[in-house]
Amino acid sequence: MAHEVRGVVAKGKGEPVSVETVLVPDPGPGEALVKVQACGVCHTDLHYREGGINDEFPFLLGHEAAGVVESVGDGVTEVEPGDFVILNWRAVCGQCRACRRGRPWYCFDTHNAKQKMTLADGTELSPALGIGAFVEKTLVAAGQCTKVDPEASPAAAGLLGCGVMAGLGAAINTGGVTRGDSVAVIGCGGVGSAAVAGARLAGAAKIIAVDIDDRKLNWATGLGATHTINSSGTDPVAAIRELTGGFGADVVIDAVGRPETYEQAFFARDLAGTVVLVGVPTPEMKLELPFLEVFGRGGALKSSWYGDCLPSRDFPMLIDLYRQGRLDLDAFVSETIALNDVEAAFTKMHHGDVLRSVVVFE
Results as ranks from 00 to 15, higher is better:
Ile319Ser: 05
Ile319Ala: 05
Ile319Gln: 03
Ile319Phe: 08
Ile319Cys: 06
Asp320Lys: 15
Asp320Trp: 02
Asp320Val: 00
Leu321Trp: 15
Leu321Pro: 05
Leu321Asn: 05
Leu321Ser: 06
Tyr322Asp: 07
Tyr322Asn: 15
Tyr322Ser: 10
Arg323Thr: 05
Arg323Glu: 09
Arg323Gln: 14
Arg323Cys: 06
Gln324His: 05
Gln324Pro: 03
Gln324Leu: 09
Gln324Phe: 01
Gln324Cys: 00
Gly325Phe: 12
Gly325Lys: 07
Gly325Tyr: 12
Gly325Trp: 12
Gly325Gln: 10
Gly325Ala: 11
Gly325Thr: 08
Gly325Glu: 14
Arg326Met: 12
Arg326Ala: 11
Leu327Tyr: 13
Leu327Asp: 08
Asp328Met: 09
Asp328Lys: 13
Leu329Cys: 06
Leu329Ser: 04
Leu329Met: 07
Leu329Lys: 04
Asp330Leu: 00
Ala331Gln: 03
Ala331Ile: 03
Ala331His: 07
Ala331Val: 01
Ala331Arg: 11
Phe332Met: 04
Phe332Gln: 04
Phe332Lys: 00
Val333Met: 00
Val333Ala: 00
Ser334Ile: 01
Glu335His: 07
Glu335Ser: 15
Glu335Phe: 00
Glu335Pro: 02
Thr336Trp: 03
Ile337Leu: 04
Ile337Pro: 02
Ile337Cys: 02
Ile337Phe: 03
Ala338Ile: 01
Ala338Met: 02
Ala338Val: 02
Ala338Gln: 13
Ala338Tyr: 00
Ala338Thr: 11
Leu339Trp: 10
Leu339Gln: 09
Leu339Val: 06
Asn340Pro: 08
Asn340Met: 05
Asn340Val: 03
Asn340His: 14
Asp341Met: 03
Asp341Trp: 02
Asp341Cys: 03
Asp341Pro: 04
Val342Cys: 10
Val342Phe: 09
Glu343Leu: 15
Glu343Trp: 15
Glu343His: 15
Glu343Phe: 15
Glu343Gln: 15
Ala344Asp: 14
Ala344Phe: 02
Ala344Gln: 14
Ala344Arg: 10
Ala345His: 09
Ala345Val: 07
Ala345Leu: 06
Ala345Asn: 12
Ala345Asp: 06
Phe346Ala: 01
Thr347Lys: 14
Thr347Leu: 13
Thr347Glu: 13
Lys348Leu: 10
Lys348Ile: 08
Met349Thr: 08
Met349Leu: 14
Met349Ala: 10
His350Glu: 08
His350Gly: 01
His350Cys: 00
His351Pro: 00
His351Met: 06
Gly352His: 09
Gly352Ala: 06
Gly352Lys: 08
Gly352Leu: 10
Gly352Trp: 09
Asp353Gln: 13
Asp353Pro: 07
Asp353Ile: 06
Val354Cys: 09
Val354Asn: 08
Val354Gln: 08
